[in-house]
Amino acid sequence: MMMRRALAGLGLALILSACAGGSDRETVSTQAELFNTIRGINTARRDLEARPPTPSRAQLDSRKAGLLEVSFEKRGLVAFLAPYSRRTDPLPGQIVVWRSTDGGQIVQRDGLLISTKGLGNDLASADIAGTQAALRQQHVHQSVNRTHYLRRDDNTQAALALNCTIQTAGHETLTIVERQFSTHHLRETCINGQGQAVNDYWIDNSDGTILKSRQWVGPELGYLSFRLLKK
């Protein structure tokens, strides 16, 4: 009986230490992968840190590349993302791909979110042409349509169509790390049959850049807030 128990203990130890190797990375075990991944998830959770310090004005001024502050409300996370790619395509607007150090990406077209990657339940792509044009011309009371193509859990994507209205929320002076900007605050209220989402944009009066925004991504991810610390 003692022997049995000792062996059972040994077995348990082995479960926690499944091991593989070889000249290439192929292996023969599903269990090992499961155990290792679960262990990885727990490690990753522990690694979550509290809000990182916001860079100072001096740090920002000396920095050559852009910097985007992203607040992920639902998960209580804040990160600073660097530009990975800037480009244009046949559609209007400048596309910027921002990335975090751990595989997350935010893609914006003229500051409007068009894709997320690496967050889970990502926004695959988005049709934001109506909002883009309305914000550019600062048209208020404008009714626009937008479509979010969202990643679903079963490896499909589905289009979520929203009807939105853009309204002014006044002119505001915005402070971003000790620097003040005069902005126009526009609010986009979007609905579909199931509910309502509100996007807020603070647009720089001098050049039309979206300096700060809070944008709704999808049902699972909720809202992301952005502050453009450095263009």
């Binding site: 840190e49 579909n192 049959g193």
Partner: peptide
């Protein structure tokens, strides 16, 4: 600036639940 920040994190089991009152699929 942020080399150690985990942005992606690993979403927990409850974090892919939709927020009530926001747009959603039926």
């Amino acid at each position: 600036l942020a080399a150690t920040i985990s942005f992606v994190a690993t979403p927990g089991p409850t974090q892919n639940v939709a927020v009530p009152g926001t747009p959603n699929f039926p």
